[in-house]
Amino acid sequence: MTMPFYVAPEQMMKDRAEYAQKGIARGRSLVATVFDGGILLVAENPSRSLHKISEIYDRIAFAGVGKYNEFDQLRVAGIRHADTKGFAYSREDVDARSLANLYAQFLGQIFTHEMKPLEIEILVAELGADGRPDQLYHVAYEGTITDEDRFAVLGGDAETIAERFAASSVDGWSLDEALRASLQALAGPDRDLEPGELEVAVLTDTNGRRAFRRLDHEELAVRLTEPVVEPKTRTRASRSAAAAAAAAAADPPEDDPAD
């Protein structure tokens, strides 16, 4: 009779995590950020038809990195979840949080119980409405879910890209500013990314009921060559900052004793 080798659980989890991380690191990265008119999603993706970014519901978008077949299966499952829920209840009852939780449970389940973990990381973004803020849920390969405030970076080189991105990120910036910063962060100092190597989409309120819109390569080329226009009103993201500034103006702080 053969006895199975004993492997310590710590070791097993570590091996699986390493395996998943390696798989994810082989793919290209993705940046999602909040701008003054909504949410921007930028992925490095040379394919025009195998999408990393997709529409889930009226105000919800999906983005995935890693193995295409694995995250695409979850993308379709997400659309099914959202459409079924919206059909059974009401369109406004569909939210990103419950979907992100389902993804997290599924990924966690696979990570602990299956031989092979999924080599993917996914992002569920929801455009805020009626005073609710925009939401970015980042779900990692082992089911860890994080609720990001202003931006999220997914993929192998996430830490470096996030550092570069954080350095240039401004509260309430315009779409063009955010787009350029995303590109620079994804590309790094040694190379340039062409519109043909990118997949870009936005969630904005200007699109009617379905907030999701892809920016095609032609539009990207135009946006990247035109000079950046400073947004006239920084409304959305900087709302709290503006309120703080107004409060400060109404109630001036006492003179600095050092003056």
Binding site: G78, K85, F106
Partner: peptide
């Protein structure tokens, strides 16, 4: 309402009905 995942042979594809 859960995540609806099917094996490839049994998948309803894009048919919501």
């Amino acid at each position: 309402m859960g995540l609806f995942l099917f094996s490839p042979g049994d998948d309803p594809g894009p048919d919501f009905g």
